[in-house]
Amino acid sequence: MRISLKSIRQLSAEQISTRVLYVLLAVIVLLFGAFFLIGYDIPYDEDPTFNAPMFTDAVLVFIYMLVLATVGITAYAVYRSIKGRDKTSDTINNIPAAKIVWLTTGLTAASLLLTFLLGSSEPVMVNGVKYADVFWLKATDMFINTALILLFVAVCGVVFGLSGYNRKVNLNK
C-alpha cells in the first residue's frame, strides 16, 4: 500500500482524523509500553533511591513533538479561519459562530489570567528539594485550573445540548 498526497486528498476529514488517531494511539501504546516494560528499574546515578527509566528521553521528545504540532495546527487553523471568514454573516447554519468564537476566546483568556493571578506560589517539595520559583508555581496552577474550568464548561455545554432546552431558547439575539 503506497501513500501519496493525491490519495490523502481523496479521503474525507473524518477518514483522515480516524487514521491519525489510530497512528497516534499505536505510537503511544508502543512508546509507553517500552517505557514501563524495558529498563524501567534502572537506578538514577546521583541518587539510587530514584528510577531513571531508559525511555524517558523518548517519551519527553514525543510529548514535545505533540505540543509543537498542536500549537502549529492551532495557529494554522486560526489563520485559515480569519483568512477565509465570511465577513457578511456571523451565523452559519443558524448557529451564532462568531459569538461562540469570541466567548470561547474570552473565557480562555480570562481563565488564564485569573488562574495565574490567583495561583498558589507556596513552595513544594520535588524529589526531596524545596521548589520555590514563584512564576513557574503560578504557571503550573494556571494551566491545571484553566484546564479544569474549560472541562467543566465543556461538560455543561454537552449537558445543555443534550437537554433540548437550547431549541426553546433563541441564542441569536
Rank of each mutant, 00 (worst) to 15 (best):
A52P: 12
K87D: 15
K99S: 08
F32L: 15
D45A: 07
L31M: 13
I92W: 06
A58I: 03
G39S: 10
V101Q: 10
S89K: 02
D57R: 08
N94I: 01
G33I: 06
E46R: 10
A52F: 01
D86L: 08
L107C: 05
A98T: 03
E122A: 06
D47I: 00
K99D: 13
L68Q: 04
P96C: 05
S81T: 07
R80P: 08
I82E: 14
D41F: 03
D86N: 13
A58S: 08
A77L: 13
A34D: 15
V78F: 04
V67F: 07
I100K: 00
G119E: 03
F36E: 13
A75C: 09
A98K: 11
A97P: 04
L37A: 15
Y44F: 02
T91E: 15
L31D: 06
P48C: 03
T88E: 15
D41I: 04
P123R: 13
Y44G: 12
Y76G: 06
A69Q: 08
A34S: 15
V101R: 05
T91K: 03
I63N: 14
D41Y: 04
N51S: 14
V78P: 01
T104A: 10
A52G: 10
M65P: 01
W102M: 06
I82Y: 04
G84N: 11
T74H: 09
I63P: 10
V124T: 13
I42M: 13
D57L: 05
S111K: 05
T108N: 12
K99I: 01
S120C: 08
V59W: 05
L112A: 12
T70R: 14
M54I: 04
G119N: 06
L60C: 06
M65Y: 00
K83V: 12
P43G: 14
A110D: 15
S111E: 11
D90C: 04
L60N: 10
G39Y: 01
R85L: 08
P43Y: 01
K83I: 07
A98E: 12
V59R: 02
G39Q: 10
A75M: 11
L114M: 09
T74M: 14
F35L: 15
A110Y: 07
L103A: 05
A77G: 06
D41V: 02
L118V: 02
A109S: 11
A98I: 00
Y79H: 08
F55P: 06
P43M: 10
A98L: 08
